[in-house]
């Protein structure tokens, strides 16, 4: 008896430290996590979308009914809101930080290290806090800061958050404000990894700065670009907190309700989890399809030939 209990830990230790087993011990947490936090809930979302759910344990199969009732006026409006935001989000948050990153790396900017760290600071604030400030900045009164600026520039004061388009504009400004510094750092990490001889070679061939950007920088940062676009597409379609923070409880005609906002309303507030699952799966399909198209267009699946 004693012998066994003495040998056992040794054997267990020998097993755990054997070269074949070690890698699996290192990755085991992810495997467990994947099964528990991703696979099981994803499968159960799919199942729930075909069910009517009353309480945490009772449910009833209802076939496609959730999907048939899915495309209500509110859901279509939410789809529009999220899509509009996602499109502008991808355009603005891909291009503007790239321009800034290139300028910061070019040596033209004095004190570029200072700007790099400063631009990151807005990302540290909570969206709720940012939303409160931006809501007030784009307030309805003529004395709200942005309206004061508009008047000073010879324009008209506006009711920014009363309309879907200008509301979306405020959302994009707020997102750019928060994420600019993060995306700049992603881009800089890519730009700094491009070997200098590529630029020198381009210079010998007589390339001007713009040609160098399109022929050397852009291909060089393709992996980073793909990463940034992929997470921006995801973040764009799944946006929720930003609109909650900006519109708070007053949401004229539901213009601030996004897909996830609708999911929350249906699933948590109205406790219709089956329906909400159908909404969630539509969102998943949307994100995956858009990202797949984007990845194909960006040549992610192309064999590396360079």
């Amino acid at each position: 008896m004693q012998q066994v209990s003495q040998r056992r830990p040794n054997r267990a230790a020998a097993f755990l430290t054997s070269r074949k087993v070690v890698p699996y011990v290192f990755v085991a947490p992810f495997v467990i996590y994947f099964l528990l936090i991703y696979l099981y809930p994803t499968v159960s979302t799919v199942m729930m979308s075909f069910q009517r759910i009353d309480g945490p344990t009772t449910s009833e199969w209802i076939g496609l009914k959730n999907y048939q009732k899915l495309f209500s006026r509110n859901f279509i409006q939410a789809l529009e809101t999220s899509t509009r935001y996602a499109i502008w989000d991808v355009i603005v948050l891909t291009i503007v930080p790239l321009l800034f990153a290139v300028l910061l790396h070019s040596g033209l900017v004095k004190g570029s290290a200072f700007f790099k760290s400063l631009f990151f600071i807005p990302a540290l604030t909570s969206i709720i806090v940012a939303g409160i400030v931006f809501r007030l900045a784009f307030g309805t009164q003529d004395t709200a800061p942005v309206n004061v600026l508009m008047t000073a520039l010879g324009g008209q004061p506006r009711q920014w958050l009363m309309f879907a388009d200008s509301g979306n504009f405020v959302l994009i400004v707020m997102t750019l404000w928060r994420w600019m510094g993060v995306n700049i750092i992603y881009y800089l990490s890519g730009i700094q990894a491009i070997p200098n001889d590529l630029y020198e070679a381009a210079e010998i061939d007589g390339a001007n700065p713009i040609q160098k950007f399109f022929k050397v920088t852009l291909p060089g940062i393709r992996p980073v670009l793909i990463y940034v676009i992929t997470i921006t597409v995801l973040g764009g379609f799944a946006m929720f907190t930003e609109s909650v923070a900006l519109w708070q409880q007053s949401n004229p005609g539901g213009i601030g309700r996004t897909i996830v906002g609708y999911l929350y309303q249906v699933g948590i507030t109205k406790a219709n989890m089956g329906m909400a699952s159908a909404v969630g799966l539509t969102l998943l399909a949307l994100v995956l399809v858009v990202n797949l198209i984007q990845l194909v267009l960006m040549g992610f699946f192309r064999k590396e030939d360079a």
Binding site: V27, F30, V31, F34, I37, Y38, Y40, P41, T42, S44, T45, M48, P56, T230, I231, L234, F237, A238, F240, V260, L263, Y264, G267, I268, M273, A276, S277, G280, L281, L283, L284, V287, L288, N291
Partner: peptide, 22 residues
């Protein structure tokens, strides 16, 4: 496993809210 990590990064966490809550 690495592919699964990438796939998971592309799934919006928001769709898992309800089953996780259950």
């Amino acid at each position: 496993i690495f592919t699964l990590v990438l796939v998971v990064m592309m799934i919006p966490f928001e769709i898992l809210l309800l089953p996780l809550y259950r």
